[in-house]
Structure formats: structure tokens, C-alpha cells
């Protein structure tokens, strides 16, 4: 099993996310992270999907995705050729015993305190998925109240863009 990060540039229409994710379901891929947003033009949306599977199945999936009329182009990323980033919001229990350690850890990771109350504090961290994993693992020593992560987004290094990729 390999882990893949794929960006799918699609026409920005209702139901398009369903069409794309349905293809993953039909080929029995489990999506581990998914982000969707508008792009530099409102006519196009970008879906970034992280999933695990076999190489041949992944290629078959990409081939099938290209057959959807709403799909404009597809780009696959690896760590060498791309920059990836994920956003974390984490709500911690706030008490005098642990507050100092939590805030120094946050400081070390570059997480920002975005909400603070007597009983809780919320931290925000934008970083690679691995660094976010590490930070969450560190926080497990204290009391985590709630976690929300966005799933990774990726762009290729250099001046090439996904829109320059020609179908197959």
C-alpha cells in the first residue's frame, strides 16, 4: 500500500465533489483527507485527496477520473516536487498545572493561541501533516477537548501549474 496525494481540478458545479468522491468509493479507496476550495478562477474548484492503495489501482482511478466531463486536470504530488500544508485547530483543557507546558510546546511548534478562556485554550498550527501529527501526539499528555484538521493542500514547486497539465 502506498500513500498518494492527488489534486483534481474540476468545474465548479454542484454535485461535482460527489462525482469525484464516488469514483473513489466505486474503486474501494478509502480517502484519508480531502479538501475542496475555489481556485484562482471561480469557474474551477480544486479537490485535494489523500488516500492509500496499490499503484495499478491508483492509475486506474486517475484514468477513470479523467473520464468525468467535469474533471479538467489531475496532478499527483510527492514530497520532492511539492509543498504541502495542513491546518490544525486544537482545543485544550486550561488549568494552572499544565498551561505552562502546553504554551511552551505551542511556542516551539509555532502554534498560535487563538482563543483563551479560564477553562480552555485553542491553538492554531499550519504545517506539514507530519509536524501536526507530532504536535497532537505531544498534546496527548494533557487533556485534548477537541481537534479539527483540514486535510492537506499541495502545490508543485516552481512555475508549473495544474492547469498546464494536458489530459493523459
Amino acid at each position: 500500500m502506498n500513500r498518494y496525494t492527488v489534486a483534481v481540478l474540476v468545474r465548479n458545479q454542484f454535485g461535482v465533489l460527489n462525482r469525484v468522491t464516488s469514483m473513489f468509493r466505486r474503486r474501494q479507496f478509502n480517502i484519508s483527507a480531502l479538501t475542496v476550495s475555489e481556485t484562482e478562477t471561480s469557474e474551477l474548484s480544486r479537490i485535494t485527496v489523500i488516500f492509500s492503495g496499490e499503484e495499478t489501482n491508483k492509475q486506474q482511478l486517475i484514468n477513470q477520473l479523467y473520464k468525468l466531463p467535469d474533471v479538467v486536470s489531475i496532478q499527483e504530488f510527492n514530497a520532492d516536487n511539492s509543498i504541502s500544508c495542513e491546518l490544525l485547530l486544537i482545543k485544550m483543557k486550561n488549568d494552572t498545572a499544565t498551561r505552562g507546558e502546553i504554551l511552551s510546546a505551542a511556542d516551539a511548534f509555532g502554534a498560535v493561541t487563538v482563543d483563551y478562556s479560564k477553562d480552555s485554550l485553542m491553538l492554531r498550527l499550519a504545517d506539514s501533516s507530519r509536524r501536526i501529527d507530532d504536535f497532537i501526539n505531544l498534546m496527548r499528555d494533557y487533556t485534548i477537548l477537541e481537534i479539527c484538521r483540514t486535510g492537506s493542500i499541495s502545490l508543485e514547486k516552481g512555475s508549473t501549474t495544474i492547469r498546464q497539465i494536458i489530459n493523459l
Binding site: T56, Q60, N63, Q64, Y66, K67, L168
Partner: peptide, 8 residues
């Protein structure tokens, strides 16, 4: 004509 059939 359907590229997804090749090598499937």
C-alpha cells in the same frame, strides 16, 4: 478509444 481500458 478508452485509455482507462489499456492495461486494466
Amino acid at each position: 478509444v478508452d485509455g482507462s481500458e489499456l492495461g486494466k
